[in-house]
Amino acid sequence: MIGVRGISKGLFATVALCGLSSVAVAADEPTIGVVVPTLDSQFWNRDVTFLQTGAAQLGVHLIVLNADNKPDQMIQSAQDLVARKVDGIISVGYWSTAPATIRFAKRANIPVIIVDTYPAFSPQTGEHTNYIAFVGPSDLDSGYHFGKALLSALKPSPDGKKVIGVVNGTAGTSVAIDRRKGLQKAIEEDGNVRIVGEVDGNFVRDQAQTAFESLYQGHPEMTGVWSGNDPMAMGVIAALKSKGKVPGKDVIVSSMDLNPENVEEVKAGEQLYDIGGHWVQGGIALEIMYNYLHGFKLPADQATIKLKLLPMTKADVPRFVRDFPGGQPNYDFKAHSKVYNKDAPLSPAFDIHYSQ
């Protein structure tokens, strides 16, 4: 399932409670703020659930702020956490919000971990000394694998080409850029692919469905769709059904995230392939932050953590259900923390895999 390592002891922090005078509390119970793009997403709910599991095991007070898919709200949430004098901030770097989050937190000497979408600079470089780590998926690697799975399943059209459409995520994000680079790698290796068009689904189901309906209307010859994430894949599947097509038969769909409804789509054969498990990134970041607050700093050369993810075909669904009940790994945060286990290595090492 998932193996990890990390963390250590002590100190005190000062926090303000309900606007009253500051009181000293043990850093064994730090307050850590989390900013996520939206809790309307199955993915981000799984991410937060794993964070909450870790917080309960480690004795962390967790504040989770939902930005409702609004870039300005992401920044406002970071400012709110700074005003609350949290001990650390874990934030998703959507819409290029990471630099501002890091900057606001630095003024208050608050450490920050960015997850999922990284800024243009590495942790602990230049003036960004409070940016202690990045944790997220290896998007290029993942984009390559679900692209390769799609292309391997397609039969060439009469002109000898495998004909696909592409539904990209939010333009300009590292997530969308790297996943598309992964697809390009798979295309170049195949050498026999024709892309009839690309649309931006903004990582959202409804937008992807509308955009893909227009794309498919103009290019009904496509037999495969590479979708940048699972919500968009659900939009593609809905669009295909509205056109009287059978997903998985008339048009093959491949995607990423391992959202619950997409696992069901893979099981039903309407989605060929999925890859994911990076909803553990929040919990991993929590463990690293807990380390840091107890005096164990992750070395700069180990501070960028790119997760290799869990692949899924129809045959893998029973294994996934067994190994990740409710979508959560069986993971003991204390056993992998130096605060509780002196033999735990400082640098986290993560491996998401099936048990058999």
Rank of each mutant, 00 (worst) to 15 (best):
S138C: 06
H128Y: 15
L272T: 07
D68I: 05
A285L: 05
D116Q: 04
M256Y: 12
G327T: 10
Q76H: 08
D72S: 13
D116N: 10
L17G: 04
G277K: 09
T210N: 09
A186E: 10
R5G: 07
R103G: 03
W95G: 01
M74P: 01
V246F: 06
F12H: 09
K314G: 03
Y331A: 06
L65P: 04
E198G: 05
A186Y: 15
F146P: 02
S96Q: 15
E270S: 12
G277T: 08
T117S: 03
V263T: 10
C18A: 10
I252S: 07
G201W: 15
I177G: 01
G277I: 14
V246P: 03
K267C: 04
S142T: 10
A349P: 02
H353G: 02
E127P: 04
H336Q: 10
S96D: 11
D141G: 03
S227Q: 04
Q209K: 14
K181D: 00
Y292C: 03
Q52G: 05
E127K: 13
R205K: 13
T125E: 11
I110K: 06
L298M: 12
M312F: 13
G224Y: 15
R205L: 09
A27I: 13
A239H: 04
S255Q: 10
A315L: 11
P220W: 15
G160T: 09
V35N: 11
F203M: 00
D68A: 11
V48R: 05
S214C: 02
D274F: 05
V4D: 04
N69G: 05
Q42F: 14
F146D: 11
G160D: 09
A67K: 13
A55D: 06
N168I: 01
I110N: 07
R179V: 00
L58G: 05
I195V: 14
L183K: 08
N229P: 03
T223L: 02
L20K: 14
K342W: 12
S21L: 14
V25W: 14
Q217D: 02
T101Y: 15
Q79D: 09
F104I: 04
P311N: 08
H145T: 03
V263C: 08
Y144C: 03
D190W: 13
V193N: 06
Q42W: 07
P231Y: 11
G327R: 04
K161Q: 12
A108E: 07
S355R: 14
T53K: 14
H336F: 08
A120H: 11
G6Q: 04
